[in-house]
Design a protein around this nucleic acid. Structure first.
Lengths: 210, 210
DNA sequence: TTAACTACCTGACATTTGTCACTTTCTCCA
DNA sequence: TGGAGAAAGTGACAAATGTCAGGTAGTTAA
């Protein structure tokens, strides 16, 4: 449908990781329209996606973050560890500074939001293939603004509290006293400027810290 | 890519409603592959989608539920009210019995989940166009199992509590005494078999009751 | 090798949350 | 027309939550 750009010498080989089958297939269809891009592998969860990248050695790997078994960020980190040559584009619903930061730490070349226009995806693939970075502009500025103030324990406890577990259960899960659990929650609540554990969990989630 | 089925006499005209641009474009690309299906309109929020259906009078309208301005369910209900001839397919991430029930009440002909295989979408469009219903099998059985046990007040209160507001604030918002608010929450907690307000809100959300 | 800093951990106390028994208001229908 | 039933509304009591003041390791920098 689109003309092959002059710069393209050969087909850009792409693997896609995305847990929603409908979206996975649709994205593949979208990219296959382009003459210079070919989808050579797919994964419907983190592990499948990782394996597909290792098998196919694509030029570009496009992945969602929230997937079963292994998140897209974990896959990216693993690929970095293994010195994979595939450039990684994170494609997600969530405009969270914490996610972007972790993506960049994991060596990703791109961070795009699913509510961008569909036409921009192919262009992003080409840019990233050329060695450029493609970051959603809105997030790029915000990214370095705020660091996660939570300690590991606070994060753990807050995650469980956000699921509706009460202090006693959390304490049992983590082998702590109930008082300690309440203390961590109190810390987290105060650090995040929340009024209670529920709001604290909500805020942390929004920022991508959980 | 796929051959035109023998039953197709003319092109099936489709409008898509979906707020994530990337997914919207990708779904359109997926359907345009089929010889007997043509995407004649798009909406990136409920109002746009409704307008597109009214303007284009398509055979089939595929829509997400959670969209700005107007949910897909509200659009479906409005189309029913206006006696639109477009058949409606709900395409969503959420396998919630409450959503399915509301979709059917709003006269939808299909309810599909985004994690189905992409190939099934075109087939669903054809079936629905022929006047058949297409419901995700997993949900179909579960759908009528459980009715929403919450009263209006309980729902209101639970929604606010789920956002982390405390009883006093909720009481002020709704002009109730704090005791009353706590009573509604207690009722909701017991009806849903939860241990506290957070878990209750989570359960209700999962079922599509909030 | 201290001092300062940080994360981790705890129990005692005050506040908020959850439960229960009860009253009021409204609708439905025999 | 006079219950029966369901939802809305309330306050008193018990249980869970949030705060505070403090104590123990481990690390870093003078």
């Amino acid at each position: 449908m689109n003309p092959t750009p002059k710069t393209a010498r050969r087909t850009i080989r792409v693997v896609i990781g995305e847990d929603q089958g409908m979206v996975l297939g649709a994205l593949a269809a979208l990219l296959e329209i382009e003459n210079d891009i070919s989808v050579v592998g797919r994964g419907r969860n983190g592990k499948e996606a990782l394996q597909a990248v290792l098998d196919q050695k694509p030029d570009v790997f496009i992945t969602d973050i929230e997937m079963p078994h292994m998140s897209g960020l974990e896959v990216a980190a693993e690929l970095k560890r293994r010195r994979s040559s595939a450039r990684v584009i994170i494609l997600t619903t969530f405009a969270r500074a914490g996610y972007l930061r972790r993506a960049l730490d994991a060596g990703a070349s791109g961070y795009l939001l699913k509510d961008m226009r569909a036409e921009q995806l192919a262009e992003a693939v080409r840019r990233v293939h050329q060695g450029l970075r493609v970051i959603d502009p809105e997030l790029a500025t915000e990214a370095w603004s705020e660091a996660d103030p939570l300690t590991d324990r606070e994060r753990q406890v807050l995650r469980l509290a956000g699921d509706g577990k009460q202090s006693g259960e959390i304490a049992a899960d983590l082998n702590l006293s109930e008082g300690t659990v309440r203390n961590y929650l109190s810390e987290a609540i105060s650090k995040l400027g929340a009024a209670n554990r529920i709001e604290a969990a909500r805020i942390a989630r929004t920022k991508g810290w959980l």
